[in-house]
Design a protein around this nucleic acid. Structure first.
Lengths: 355, 355
DNA sequence: ACGCGCATTGCAATCGATTGCATGAATGGC
DNA sequence: GCCATTCATGCAATCGATTGCAATGCGCGT
């Protein structure tokens, strides 16, 4: 007797295993095994039950399954955001990363719970695992709280983090070679004859700090020292990047190269440079970081440091699943990192000024 | 007796309510009520238990809670992808939308399960609800399967879709006014003296079809008819956009305006136009759609049709929660849609040719 | 001193599945 | 034709919480 369902309301009761069992004239155990594809069930019973299930739109309640079986097929992907700047989903890099993780998880039969948390309380993410909702965590970025991440890992929380390799690190990271990335950019810009460099990015974040270190160390080897005034600490936001760049141009009219720690910042910087009448790359060379999809279609096409995002997503998922299998945690995986040179930093039609 | 935990392994058993009850010297019922903030529990018992819970990193197992209480605090956000083109996360618009949804859901105490599905089997998303994992669904885009969405809604599935208002629609949509958007672009381009227009986008998708209709209808009112050769059916992918644009330029050298159905396509088109030596906007005006963050920082800054993404995210969540409360479903909400004119289509320094 | 009411707390059933073990039917060996 | 196997299925306990109802203890009025 199918009672008339309330018009459009959620009044309809969902069918459950016992109902299907009744329909099939078997016990719930049999239905459970049949749908799980157990070898204990005869071929025709299984077929009959599966057909019935499809007919009635029945799907096993995975909440109950998870509870009983104890295995979870959901992974928490955590995107921190800074309270102050509301910075978070702004950067296209993040977008690519989430897509890569979604792919990797889906392929392996896992679901993805996407969660935003305050970047100052990374450890709040632990509630997703403590509360039994997810089997493990993937955190995008270390932000300013290496210590919190270490504490979580020491507590035995299955955790993989996108970011930089750091001293005394207890958790597993996957990331690019930021030191190398910075160095490559420095060498490239030097080879183009640039001398007055600017660095754009928040060096309070480990990855950015390493990019800066690689950059400035390589410059120093060539006799160029980067002072504090050649560096603007800006969050990964287009508008801040543009504003900082405008200030820097006014303060240092001689600048002839900019290394931005993300493509978004690089594009914003280019926008600002144009406002001040600088030509790219003739007057100023600009290099970004990440090689997001749009970088190639920007004008001028953006030189940038490429990190293999898809491979990164896969690596993070693999490391996490290994952790969940109880394998010993890898400390850090460093992915291939290389410079992609496009128009925004190519050639220097302008004569290099004597120093 | 805390057994020594296997080094870094997942061997550690999670604490549960009964354990905490033992520690506090009360029953599990009391712990449950105390943590839920029930008025039945005395103030000091509650405080004692809550302190204890914090001390031991105890978090109520929400899988068990959901099962028993029947209320779910998780919403499925579904991002379809086209098998053929692997198109999905590519468009920055999507990125903004996911961010807006994450914000809206988090604010209201819901979690977000992000799921990718085949755009040809939108109804596969129903498994998230049928399987009890999520309370309802938010689908981004109607793609080519209005019928599947109707069937899901008729089945009583709590569902809200981002997209266009369509005839005989049984489900709730939230979206911009695509017809108006298309018309605004047409009128703007005409006002700039443009006459040879090109439309870029996959008109197999309802939203794009409406943008095209608004665009071509407005043109027709001004005596301009858009033939099939003035329209390229391309997916939302940068590389396809660029390639189609190159072909169009070669086939129709006289073109002086391009309306792309997404900012990503517009940027790719600009990139292609430049390759062929066309100046933007002097030779060709380009207008995009969405007003993604980068549009303003592109070169030249991109004219585009703006849809309020954050408001859209909030609206979708509100409609879905209303559905879950059993309220009568709204059929469609159409958001404010307006043209943002920037450099890419501004002015026409070139003398308008006599017709 | 007794009974009543109120404020707390515990017992036990329940949510919807999974799974070890027991059971019953069919088959095969001798 | 009877017992030992094998195969398929059912019973009942269980996962970790929530919640209606019963029980306890206490204060207080009379």
């Amino acid at each position: 007797m199918s009672r008339p369902k309330a018009p459009g309301a959620a009044g309809r009761k969902r069918m459950q295993m016992a109902d299907l069992a009744r329909l099939a004239g078997v016990s719930a155990s049999t239905v459970s095994r049949a749908l799980a594809g157990s070898a204990l069930i005869s071929e025709d019973t299984r077929a009959r039950i599966q057909t019935l299930a499809r007919q009635f739109n029945y799907t096993v309640n995975s909440v109950a399954t998870d509870l009983r079986s104890g295995v979870k097929r959901t992974i928490g992907v955590v995107v921190p955001y800074e309270q102050a700047t509301r910075q978070s989903f702004a950067d296209p890099f993040l977008h690519g990363m989430i897509g890569a993780l979604a792919d990797a998880l889906t392929e392996r039969g896992y679901e993805m719970l996407l969660s935003r948390i305050d970047a100052d309380r990374l450890d709040a993410a632990a509630a997703l695992v403590d509360g039994g909702r997810t089997a493990g965590l993937i955190l995008i970025g270390q932000w300013r709280h290496h210590d919190q991440l270490n504490a979580m890992a020491e507590r035995g929380l299955p955790l993989v983090v996108w970011g930089a390799r750091l001293p005394r690190q207890q958790y597993c990271t996957v990331g690019g070679d930021n030191l190398l990335g910075g160095r490559l950019v420095a060498e490239h810009l030097l080879a183009q004859g640039r001398r007055h460099m600017i660095f754009l990015g928040d060096t309070g974040l480990p990855e950015v700090a390493q990019r800066f270190r690689g950059f400035s160390q390589a410059l120093k080897q060539h006799g160029i020292t980067l002072g504090g005034e050649q560096r603007a600490v800006v969050p990964f936001l287009a508008e801040s990047g543009r504003q900082s760049m405008l200030d820097l141009i006014d303060a240092q009219p001689a600048l002839d190269a900019v290394f931005a720690s993300s493509d978004l910042l690089a594009m914003a910087a280019i926008s600002a440079l144009r406002e001040r009448g600088r030509r790219i790359p003739e007057d100023v060379a600009v290099v970004g970081y990440d090689d997001v999809e749009l970088a190639a279609h920007f004008h001028p096409p953006l030189s940038t440091v490429r990190q293999p995002i898809a491979a990164g997503g896969t690596a993070m998922v693999e490391h996490l699943l290994a952790l969940l299998r109880g394998e010993a945690p890898a400390r850090a995986e460093v992915l291939e990192t290389r410079l992609v040179v496009r128009e925004s930093s190519r050639a220097t039609p302008r004569v290099v000024k004597a120093r």
